[in-house]
Design a protein around this nucleic acid. Structure first.
Lengths: 200, 200
DNA sequence: CTATCTTAAGTAAACGTTCACTAACTTAAG
DNA sequence: CTTAAGTTAGTGAACGTTTACTTAAGATAG
């Protein structure tokens, strides 16, 4: 018999194992038995904590989707120029993703499935950047700089380039970039982005 | 009984139907029976033309992955400045993807599965851009412009921003960009990219 | 006729899920 | 402090379904 855990601990352990497997192979790629085997527990245990496989999957998805970065520290500590702040926010985000790449894969799965969670991923993970860029460029325009830029499209560009760096390093593991660390890559990209919005 | 087709026509019709379904739901999300039903044919027909479900999937994947754009027209017709050429190539690519969004989804599936095809997708679809950017920036540097840019990272940025635009419009269908056509979006992005590499 | 293609009707294995049951812990009366 | 009753966590086999795949017989064009 498997070790007896408190309901809350067991639930957490199921979520942790399911997350790794679902991130790796997607919903249909993982069987309930496989999850149970990894937990060294019988399949029925899963149904004590989740009403169905789908329910477990959605719990995994929403746990990841609902995680938000707290950028307060980043805003407080350091100069408040647009580029510097954006760089600090981005590096914080990128480093947190690098620590847990399963997040990236789950985001992709959610996007392909068109699930509700895909929207949450955007709201909690990317929206802060889009908002900061739209706001920041708006302020700068009042000062007569960064004029003639569509802030929304700039935010799209930013999101795309950061995402591509994350994919290249964490999903594709393209060895074209073996000489650049992820942080290094992101710093280059931000410098280029600032030029793109006429702040370089 | 279903209409009798020549082997080659039947094979092609199977590939066409399987492509739509696999692009939509991924390998494990589609059953052999489902494909057969859509073809109005019995499952055994599939096994006459493909040795297994996996074999059929790989045929779909490699058919898409091996498609290459022919950029000759684009290179010949029009001025040969770096920005103009890049824009024409990109628009040609983007329009071809818009005509067949299943390609995009299959590329994502392949990436998540880490399949061999993922490499082919890059080689046939994105590599031409990466190569053109690396070469073009190299030439420009000799003329003393666009200096101090890492061409490889610039190519990453370019790929990311184009991909993000495609996702936003074709996969996510984000209505933040309902006012911009895909072509419009891409033109803005290219203008920004040129500034990012000091050519704006 | 006959070679080729399609079909209906299967197979065994894997799937998600539920079941009757047992082991371990918690509680409170004697 | 014991001990019996009650509660929670876990088991493993079995359920009905769906899966990928096969076989043997029927239909049709050349």
């Amino acid at each position: 018999m498997a070790k007896r855990l408190q309901a809350s601990e067991r639930r957490a352990s199921i979520l942790a194992v399911a997350k790794v497997l679902f991130a790796d192979k997607g919903y249909h790629g993982v069987s309930v038995d496989e999850i149970a085997v990894r937990l060294a527990v019988s399949p029925a245990v899963l149904y004590r904590h989740f009403s169905s496989k789908q329910d477990l999957y959605e719990a995994v998805l929403s746990e990841i989707a609902c995680t938000r970065e707290n950028y307060v520290d980043v805003v407080v500590r350091g100069p408040d120029d647009f580029g510097g702040m954006l760089a600090r926010m981005t590096l914080m985000y990128v480093e947190s993703v690098a620590r847990d790449p399963d997040y990236l894969r789950m985001e992709l799965h959610a996007a392909l499935e068109g699930s509700q969670a895909a929207r949450q991923f955007f709201e909690n993970r990317w929206r802060p950047f889009a908002d900061y860029i739209e706001f920041g460029l708006g302020e700068l325009r009042k000062e007569g700089v960064a004029t003639g830029i569509d802030a929304r499209i700039a935010a799209l560009m930013f999101q795309g380039m950061v995402r591509e760096a994350l994919y290249a390093k964490l999903v594709y593991q393209a060895d074209r970039f073996r000489d650049h660390s992820l942080v290094d890559l992101v710093k280059h990209l931000i410098a280029m982005f600032l030029r793109a919005v006429k702040l370089g």
